[in-house]
Protein backbone atom coordinates (compact mmCIF):
# COMPACT_ATOMS: atom_id res chain seq x y z
CA UNK A 1 0.00 0.00 0.00
CA UNK A 2 2.83 2.35 0.79
CA UNK A 3 4.19 3.33 -2.58
CA UNK A 4 6.07 6.32 -1.33
CA UNK A 5 8.09 5.51 1.76
CA UNK A 6 10.82 6.87 3.98
CA UNK A 7 12.82 8.39 1.17
CA UNK A 8 9.97 10.49 -0.10
CA UNK A 9 9.04 11.42 3.47
CA UNK A 10 12.60 12.64 3.92
CA UNK A 11 12.42 14.54 0.66
CA UNK A 12 9.20 16.30 1.62
CA UNK A 13 10.63 17.02 5.05
CA UNK A 14 13.88 18.45 3.74
CA UNK A 15 12.23 20.55 1.06
CA UNK A 16 9.89 22.15 3.61
CA UNK A 17 12.69 22.56 6.07
CA UNK A 18 14.99 24.10 3.51
CA UNK A 19 12.37 26.61 2.45
CA UNK A 20 11.65 27.38 6.10
CA UNK A 21 15.32 27.90 6.89
CA UNK A 22 15.68 30.25 3.95
CA UNK A 23 12.68 32.29 5.05
CA UNK A 24 13.98 32.33 8.63
CA UNK A 25 17.30 33.73 7.51
CA UNK A 26 15.66 36.41 5.40
CA UNK A 27 13.45 37.39 8.27
CA UNK A 28 16.32 37.49 10.74
CA UNK A 29 18.46 39.46 8.28
CA UNK A 30 15.81 42.13 8.30
CA UNK A 31 14.64 42.05 11.90
CA UNK A 32 17.90 41.32 13.68
CA UNK A 33 20.76 42.56 11.45
CA UNK A 34 23.12 41.85 14.34
CA UNK A 35 22.20 38.13 14.39
CA UNK A 36 24.58 37.31 11.59
CA UNK A 37 25.18 33.77 12.69
CA UNK A 38 21.53 32.86 12.41
CA UNK A 39 21.29 34.56 9.03
CA UNK A 40 24.33 32.76 7.73
CA UNK A 41 23.27 29.40 9.09
CA UNK A 42 19.88 29.71 7.44
CA UNK A 43 21.42 30.73 4.16
CA UNK A 44 23.96 27.93 4.18
CA UNK A 45 21.78 25.05 5.24
CA UNK A 46 18.86 25.79 2.96
CA UNK A 47 20.51 25.04 -0.40
CA UNK A 48 22.50 22.18 1.09
CA UNK A 49 19.47 20.43 2.57
CA UNK A 50 17.40 21.11 -0.52
CA UNK A 51 20.20 19.47 -2.49
CA UNK A 52 20.14 16.45 -0.20
CA UNK A 53 16.37 16.27 -0.62
CA UNK A 54 16.68 16.35 -4.39
CA UNK A 55 19.29 13.62 -4.27
CA UNK A 56 16.88 11.48 -2.28
CA UNK A 57 14.18 12.06 -4.86
CA UNK A 58 16.57 10.98 -7.56
CA UNK A 59 17.56 7.89 -5.64
CA UNK A 60 13.93 6.96 -5.25
CA UNK A 61 13.34 7.38 -8.98
CA UNK A 62 15.05 4.13 -9.93
CA UNK A 63 14.48 4.28 -13.64
CA UNK A 64 15.89 7.78 -13.85
CA UNK A 65 18.83 6.81 -11.67
CA UNK A 66 19.69 4.12 -14.21
CA UNK A 67 19.37 6.55 -17.11
CA UNK A 68 19.92 10.07 -15.68
CA UNK A 69 19.33 11.90 -18.94
CA UNK A 70 15.66 11.09 -18.45
CA UNK A 71 15.45 13.64 -15.66
CA UNK A 72 15.35 16.31 -18.36
CA UNK A 73 11.79 15.15 -19.07
CA UNK A 74 10.85 16.22 -15.54
CA UNK A 75 10.40 19.72 -16.90
CA UNK A 76 7.94 18.79 -19.61
CA UNK A 77 4.47 18.33 -18.16
CA UNK A 78 3.00 21.58 -16.88
CA UNK A 79 -0.12 19.84 -15.66
CA UNK A 80 1.95 17.83 -13.21
CA UNK A 81 2.51 19.29 -9.77
CA UNK A 82 5.84 17.52 -9.79
CA UNK A 83 6.96 19.37 -12.90
CA UNK A 84 5.85 22.65 -11.40
CA UNK A 85 7.61 21.76 -8.17
CA UNK A 86 10.72 20.92 -10.12
CA UNK A 87 10.70 24.44 -11.52
CA UNK A 88 10.07 25.90 -8.06
CA UNK A 89 12.89 23.91 -6.57
CA UNK A 90 15.21 24.79 -9.43
CA UNK A 91 14.61 28.52 -9.10
CA UNK A 92 14.75 28.30 -5.34
CA UNK A 93 17.98 26.34 -5.45
CA UNK A 94 19.55 28.81 -7.83
CA UNK A 95 18.60 31.76 -5.69
CA UNK A 96 19.54 30.05 -2.43
CA UNK A 97 22.83 28.84 -3.81
CA UNK A 98 23.67 32.31 -5.15
CA UNK A 99 22.88 33.90 -1.82
CA UNK A 100 24.90 31.31 0.07
CA UNK A 101 27.80 31.95 -2.26
CA UNK A 102 27.57 35.72 -1.72
CA UNK A 103 27.43 35.12 2.01
CA UNK A 104 30.49 32.93 1.74
CA UNK A 105 32.33 35.50 -0.34
CA UNK A 106 31.12 38.14 2.11
CA UNK A 107 29.57 40.08 -0.73
CA UNK A 108 26.31 41.94 -0.86
CA UNK A 109 23.25 39.98 -1.82
CA UNK A 110 21.27 41.20 -4.79
CA UNK A 111 17.88 42.23 -3.39
CA UNK A 112 15.95 41.03 -6.44
CA UNK A 113 17.50 37.59 -6.16
CA UNK A 114 16.60 37.50 -2.50
CA UNK A 115 12.98 38.39 -3.29
CA UNK A 116 12.96 35.67 -5.93
CA UNK A 117 14.38 33.32 -3.32
CA UNK A 118 11.71 34.27 -0.82
CA UNK A 119 9.01 33.83 -3.40
CA UNK A 120 10.20 30.39 -4.47
CA UNK A 121 10.93 29.29 -0.91
CA UNK A 122 7.26 29.89 -0.20
CA UNK A 123 6.33 28.10 -3.41
CA UNK A 124 8.47 25.10 -2.51
CA UNK A 125 6.93 24.86 0.95
CA UNK A 126 3.44 24.93 -0.51
CA UNK A 127 4.44 22.52 -3.27
CA UNK A 128 5.37 19.78 -0.81
CA UNK A 129 1.80 19.79 0.39
CA UNK A 130 0.23 20.10 -3.03
CA UNK A 131 2.31 17.27 -4.44
CA UNK A 132 0.31 14.80 -2.42
CA UNK A 133 -2.69 17.03 -1.78
CA UNK A 134 -3.85 16.74 -5.39
CA UNK A 135 -3.92 12.95 -5.19
CA UNK A 136 -7.63 12.10 -5.18
CA UNK A 137 -6.87 8.46 -4.70
CA UNK A 138 -5.83 9.01 -1.11
CA UNK A 139 -8.56 10.89 0.73
CA UNK A 140 -6.27 11.54 3.69
CA UNK A 141 -4.08 13.64 1.44
CA UNK A 142 -6.73 15.13 -0.75
CA UNK A 143 -7.67 18.06 1.51
CA UNK A 144 -7.16 21.80 1.40
CA UNK A 145 -5.63 21.73 4.87
CA UNK A 146 -2.73 19.48 4.05
CA UNK A 147 -0.73 22.06 2.05
CA UNK A 148 -1.25 24.60 4.84
CA UNK A 149 -0.16 22.07 7.41
CA UNK A 150 2.95 21.28 5.40
CA UNK A 151 3.79 24.99 5.01
CA UNK A 152 3.40 25.55 8.72
CA UNK A 153 5.44 22.50 9.55
CA UNK A 154 8.04 23.48 6.93
CA UNK A 155 8.47 26.88 8.49
CA UNK A 156 8.67 25.50 11.98
CA UNK A 157 11.24 22.85 11.05
CA UNK A 158 13.14 25.51 9.10
CA UNK A 159 13.32 27.71 12.18
CA UNK A 160 14.23 24.71 14.33
CA UNK A 161 17.05 23.61 12.07
CA UNK A 162 18.44 27.14 11.82
CA UNK A 163 18.30 27.68 15.55
CA UNK A 164 19.74 24.31 16.34
CA UNK A 165 22.80 24.76 14.17
CA UNK A 166 23.19 28.38 15.31
CA UNK A 167 23.06 27.32 18.96
CA UNK A 168 26.23 25.34 18.52
CA UNK A 169 27.99 28.39 17.13
CA UNK A 170 26.53 31.21 19.18
CA UNK A 171 24.48 30.29 22.26
CA UNK A 172 23.58 33.85 23.11
CA UNK A 173 22.13 34.88 19.86
CA UNK A 174 19.45 32.21 19.76
CA UNK A 175 17.92 33.66 22.88
CA UNK A 176 18.08 37.10 21.51
CA UNK A 177 15.75 36.62 18.55
CA UNK A 178 12.61 36.71 20.64
CA UNK A 179 10.19 37.37 17.80
CA UNK A 180 11.45 34.28 15.96
CA UNK A 181 10.73 32.32 19.09
CA UNK A 182 7.28 33.75 19.27
CA UNK A 183 6.62 32.91 15.66
CA UNK A 184 7.92 29.43 16.22
CA UNK A 185 5.63 28.92 19.19
CA UNK A 186 2.60 30.13 17.25
CA UNK A 187 3.50 27.83 14.36
CA UNK A 188 3.65 24.82 16.67
CA UNK A 189 0.34 25.67 18.23
CA UNK A 190 -1.15 26.18 14.78
CA UNK A 191 0.18 22.82 13.72
CA UNK A 192 -1.61 21.01 16.53
CA UNK A 193 -4.77 22.81 15.61
CA UNK A 194 -4.37 22.00 11.89
CA UNK A 195 -3.68 18.33 12.48
CA UNK A 196 -6.80 17.79 14.51
CA UNK A 197 -8.95 19.90 12.24
CA UNK A 198 -7.73 17.92 9.26
CA UNK A 199 -8.45 14.61 11.00
CA UNK A 200 -11.88 15.76 12.03
CA UNK A 201 -12.89 16.94 8.60
CA UNK A 202 -11.41 14.15 6.50
CA UNK A 203 -12.52 11.30 8.72
CA UNK A 204 -16.11 12.36 8.32
CA UNK A 205 -15.92 12.65 4.53
CA UNK A 206 -14.84 9.21 3.49
CA UNK A 207 -14.29 5.65 4.70
CA UNK A 208 -10.78 5.40 3.38
CA UNK A 209 -9.81 8.63 5.13
CA UNK A 210 -11.47 7.43 8.31
CA UNK A 211 -9.44 4.26 8.03
CA UNK A 212 -6.26 6.29 7.55
CA UNK A 213 -7.01 8.36 10.58
CA UNK A 214 -7.90 5.47 12.79
CA UNK A 215 -4.61 3.85 11.77
CA UNK A 216 -2.88 6.99 13.02
CA UNK A 217 -4.93 7.81 16.07
CA UNK A 218 -5.72 4.38 17.45
CA UNK A 219 -4.24 1.79 15.13
CA UNK A 220 -0.83 0.56 14.18
CA UNK A 221 0.74 4.02 14.04
CA UNK A 222 -0.80 5.41 17.21
CA UNK A 223 2.42 5.20 19.24
CA UNK A 224 4.29 7.09 16.56
CA UNK A 225 1.53 9.65 16.42
CA UNK A 226 0.81 10.25 20.10
CA UNK A 227 4.29 9.87 21.48
CA UNK A 228 6.38 10.83 18.47
CA UNK A 229 4.44 13.59 16.79
CA UNK A 230 2.10 14.99 19.43
CA UNK A 231 4.19 14.35 22.55
CA UNK A 232 7.76 14.86 21.43
CA UNK A 233 7.27 16.82 18.23
CA UNK A 234 4.68 19.32 19.38
CA UNK A 235 3.71 19.40 23.08
CA UNK A 236 7.24 19.16 24.43
CA UNK A 237 8.61 22.06 22.35
CA UNK A 238 5.44 24.08 22.94
CA UNK A 239 5.83 23.70 26.70
CA UNK A 240 9.54 24.46 26.75
CA UNK A 241 9.24 27.43 24.42
CA UNK A 242 6.26 28.79 26.31
CA UNK A 243 8.07 28.49 29.63
CA UNK A 244 11.12 30.09 28.13
CA UNK A 245 9.15 32.98 26.73
CA UNK A 246 7.40 33.46 30.05
CA UNK A 247 10.63 33.50 32.02
CA UNK A 248 12.12 35.75 29.40
CA UNK A 249 9.44 38.31 30.18
CA UNK A 250 10.41 38.07 33.82
CA UNK A 251 14.11 38.40 33.08
CA UNK A 252 13.57 41.45 30.97
CA UNK A 253 12.61 43.29 34.17
CA UNK A 254 15.47 41.78 36.05
CA UNK A 255 18.98 42.62 34.81
CA UNK A 256 20.58 39.76 36.73
CA UNK A 257 18.25 37.26 35.17
CA UNK A 258 18.99 38.59 31.74
CA UNK A 259 22.64 37.95 32.27
CA UNK A 260 22.00 34.42 33.33
CA UNK A 261 19.91 33.83 30.29
CA UNK A 262 22.51 35.31 28.01
CA UNK A 263 25.21 33.11 29.42
CA UNK A 264 23.04 30.28 28.13
CA UNK A 265 23.92 27.74 30.77
CA UNK A 266 20.44 26.31 31.04
CA UNK A 267 19.15 27.75 27.79
CA UNK A 268 21.32 25.76 25.42
CA UNK A 269 20.03 22.42 26.64
CA UNK A 270 16.46 23.59 26.23
CA UNK A 271 17.20 24.83 22.72
CA UNK A 272 18.84 21.57 21.72
CA UNK A 273 15.94 19.56 23.06
CA UNK A 274 13.21 21.77 21.62
CA UNK A 275 14.64 22.11 18.16
CA UNK A 276 15.59 18.46 17.80
CA UNK A 277 12.11 17.54 18.97
CA UNK A 278 10.56 19.84 16.37
CA UNK A 279 12.72 18.30 13.64
CA UNK A 280 11.80 14.79 14.72
CA UNK A 281 8.15 15.81 14.76
CA UNK A 282 8.38 17.29 11.29
CA UNK A 283 9.80 14.10 9.88
CA UNK A 284 7.30 11.91 11.74
CA UNK A 285 4.45 14.01 10.36
CA UNK A 286 5.57 13.34 6.75
CA UNK A 287 6.14 9.70 7.55
CA UNK A 288 2.71 9.26 9.11
CA UNK A 289 0.98 10.96 6.24
CA UNK A 290 2.66 8.62 3.78
CA UNK A 291 2.32 5.49 5.93
CA UNK A 292 -1.37 5.91 6.53
CA UNK A 293 -2.21 6.45 2.87
CA UNK A 294 -5.30 4.29 2.37
CA UNK A 295 -6.54 4.46 -1.19
CA UNK A 296 -10.20 4.63 -2.08
CA UNK A 297 -11.97 1.32 -2.47
CA UNK A 298 -14.20 -0.12 -5.19
CA UNK A 299 -16.88 -1.61 -3.01
Amino acid sequence: MMVWGTIIAAYLFLAGLSAGAFLTSSYVARKYPEATIIRKVGRFISPVLMGVGLLLLIVDAEAGLKDPLRFIYLFTNFSSVMTIGTYFISFFMMAAAYIALMEFLKKDVNKIVEYIGIFFAGAVAIYTGFLIGVVQTVPLWNTAILPILFVVSGLSTGIAATMLVSAFIDKKMVHHVISVKKIHLSLLVAEVFLIFTMFLITSSTNVAAAESISMIVSGQYSMLFWVGLIGVGLVLPIVIEALELLSKKKFEHDPVGLQVAASGSHGIAATLITESAVLAGGFILRMLVLLAAVPISFF
Binding site: D60, A61, G64, R70, V134, V135, T137
Partner: peptide, 20 residues
Amino acid sequence: DKCIGCKYCVVACPYGARTQ
Protein backbone atom coordinates in the same frame (compact mmCIF):
# COMPACT_ATOMS: atom_id res chain seq x y z
CA ASP B 1 12.17 5.36 -22.27
CA LYS B 2 10.90 8.51 -20.58
CA CYS B 3 9.81 7.09 -17.25
CA ILE B 4 12.05 8.01 -14.32
CA GLY B 5 10.25 5.78 -11.86
CA CYS B 6 9.13 8.56 -9.55
CA LYS B 7 5.93 6.60 -8.81
CA TYR B 8 3.79 9.71 -8.76
CA CYS B 9 1.46 7.98 -11.19
CA VAL B 10 1.32 4.95 -8.93
CA VAL B 11 0.04 6.97 -6.00
CA ALA B 12 -2.29 8.94 -8.24
CA CYS B 13 -3.93 5.96 -9.92
CA PRO B 14 -7.22 5.27 -8.13
CA TYR B 15 -7.26 1.66 -9.28
CA GLY B 16 -3.87 0.41 -8.17
CA ALA B 17 -3.30 -0.41 -11.80
CA ARG B 18 0.36 0.49 -12.05
CA THR B 19 3.25 -1.70 -11.09
CA GLN B 20 6.94 -1.11 -10.97
